[in-house]
Design a protein around this nucleic acid. Sequence first.
DNA 1: ACGTAAGGATCGTTCAACAATTCGACAAGA
DNA 2: TCTTGTCGAATTGTTGAACGATCCTTACGT
Lengths: 228, 228
Amino acid sequence: MEVDDLVADLSQDRPRLGRSSTAERVADILRERISEGFFQPGQRLSEEAISEALRVSRNTLREAFRLLGHERLLDHQLNRGVFVRLPSVEDVLDLYRVRRVLEGSAVRRPPSPQTLALVKEAMRDAERAAAEDDWQRVGTANIRFHQALVSLNDSPRIDELMRQLLAELRLVFHVMDNPRAFHEPFVERNRVLLGLVESGRREEAAAYLDDYLDHAEKLLVHAYEPNR
Amino acid sequence: MEVDDLVADLSQDRPRLGRSSTAERVADILRERISEGFFQPGQRLSEEAISEALRVSRNTLREAFRLLGHERLLDHQLNRGVFVRLPSVEDVLDLYRVRRVLEGSAVRRPPSPQTLALVKEAMRDAERAAAEDDWQRVGTANIRFHQALVSLNDSPRIDELMRQLLAELRLVFHVMDNPRAFHEPFVERNRVLLGLVESGRREEAAAYLDDYLDHAEKLLVHAYEPNR
DNA sequence: ACGTAAGGATCGTTCAACAATTCGACAAGA
DNA sequence: TCTTGTCGAATTGTTGAACGATCCTTACGT
């Protein structure tokens, strides 16, 4: 390898150089807390209390709030504060509309073996977790499954979109009383879907997926009552 | 109508109450300036200069920067400042990947007459502008055409995504020397595409669209040299 | 050509202050 | 009892100043 090629290769690591500002790290922390349900949907996040707890200034915290607001995890109401987003039923419907588009287009493409391996790994993890009755893990593995599935589109922007979308879906799960009943039936479906994709029967996979998502949406909407 | 019904109806106007903070209005101004090319891709936006010009504090301006950064219009580099985003060739490729997914799924659905009317109106506007040699207007009408086309998906989130995506594409146009040569051939194609959609030949429309986008992407990537 | 040092410019973050707004409580009136 | 007006506490919105950290340029020496 020539020197020029070596440095060209090195430039791939460029993004890893980007450190992060305090505001971004604060956003990371809050995102994680929201995602794990520590902050519940609808809850108000006090600027004073949180800035004090994290030992950052209100200004810095507000920058972090803006970031998460743009990701639809927080709801910023003028002069009233920021609240953990509480998705409406219409939000759920829209989320599934987008999923149908993204996942549908994903299974219609010729899959790359590497990303397909990720899909399969997520599926197996979900199965193992289900066998161990660990429904929390089943849920996250299931999310990984669909995230990997969408990454078959081979588009960074779509990956990012799906990430946000699933984070938003997590909010929905947190207001449901019984997430295990929701995740259980899909462990098996994931295997079937992956089988269809692997064997190249793309239209069948797409049809199966549509049915899959219809079913999930119906279950979710039925069980979902964001009114307290 | 009962009183209860009246107030229930009134609650539809709830969103109109939402005023906007200074940071959001600042973001609106900057977004517009970037979109119209007043701020050129790659240009650095000084916190001090802009906060002074708009008479807002640096803190408020930074909140606005965070918003636009999340929309990929600004590039925030730690300790170096914010720059108007200068999309790379890979960005262009990815933008078109997403467009293929969004627009492709749009034309495969049964179109609603109202949104279809919007598509047609944008197409006609582009044609009129082309007849008058107003290529600036052709560009914006063409964007409206595709925005309306995507809205056939009937999903607010997809609409929003497309909006951002097209704003990002505008950045690309601004670094090209000759946008008119780029927009010209697509005026006619828009009419053909709309014809296919209207007559319900969805798969043909999808195929035509794929070819359309392939062509546009090739033209763009060929003419696009983000190196100064 | 390379390493180092110094300086200025700009960003990152904090802090304190004040204006604007919301919200609940409570009293006045029908 | 129900409605409406008003007050005050609490919180957010925004500002301006301050200081350390980082980057960039220039100059100097090897």
